[in-house]
Design a binder for these strands. Sequence first.
DNA 1: TTGCGTGCAAAGGTTTTGCATGGCA
DNA 2: TGCCATGCAAAACCTTTGCACGCAA
Lengths: 137, 137
Amino acid sequence: MQQHYKTRQRELILSFLREHAECCFSAKEIRAGLKDGGIDLGEATVYRTLTLLVSTGSLSRYEGAKGSGATYQYATENPACEHHLHLKCRTCGTFFHLECSHFKNLWDHMAEEHGFDISRADTVLYGTCESCREAKV
Amino acid sequence: MQQHYKTRQRELILSFLREHAECCFSAKEIRAGLKDGGIDLGEATVYRTLTLLVSTGSLSRYEGAKGSGATYQYATENPACEHHLHLKCRTCGTFFHLECSHFKNLWDHMAEEHGFDISRADTVLYGTCESCREAKV
DNA sequence: TTGCGTGCAAAGGTTTTGCATGGCA
DNA sequence: TGCCATGCAAAACCTTTGCACGCAA
């Protein structure tokens, strides 16, 4: 197993995401966000760091929608996340976090009846949010 | 609203996906599949056609996993798909279709209690399949 | 000192776009 | 004939990789 050093860059990236734990950011946005704070990191470093932090469980990675790349988010280790669901509106692009115990049934059912272990952190349900549904009418 | 012509290329791509309605294909795979049949379409044409067919509802588009691109599948209009769920194993990459009435509860709950209209065709749940779970032990 | 991390530049893969030509209606 | 579609090549994007230098432990 390889060892990991604690570096300024890793701290910066992780801090940035921890301070905005309710949002998802693309690699580009993270880089831009840090740049706004006067910190300029290499592109490769950002990608390598994100990959590392996802593998250690510090971050979650979500596959991007059409055209855009993947997005990353600080992974809260709150046990409440067992019932946590991620939603993304196809129309306005908003990303929602939903706490609802109703979902536990689904995960359990999937695991017990279908042998599939759903990754809560990775999974995003796509659809249309309330505001956009109303706007369409 | 723009009009659409019925062209040989569109028919070919749609036929290919309809004949393999149980599978997902990347743009590259679709092109390769047609090439095996002696049909060589331009790259841009394939992408433009796929985008068009998704917008008309003939196809579903799924965001690809890390590294790979998006995949497309023939959109069956079977009402049974109301209970249809898509799963993708992060380990082996296998794509599963699962028919289970259990999910209707979730969709209904989402719509009624949270105002979010989930798109069945677009949504993919990520996790680990049975075989890979066993292999890990 | 040792070995991992960083930054730059270049490369890789997927998808989009510009433009002239081709084809449907 | 009038648009829309196709094909090629080039470009745009996002992400990864190679390599020399820098830095944590």
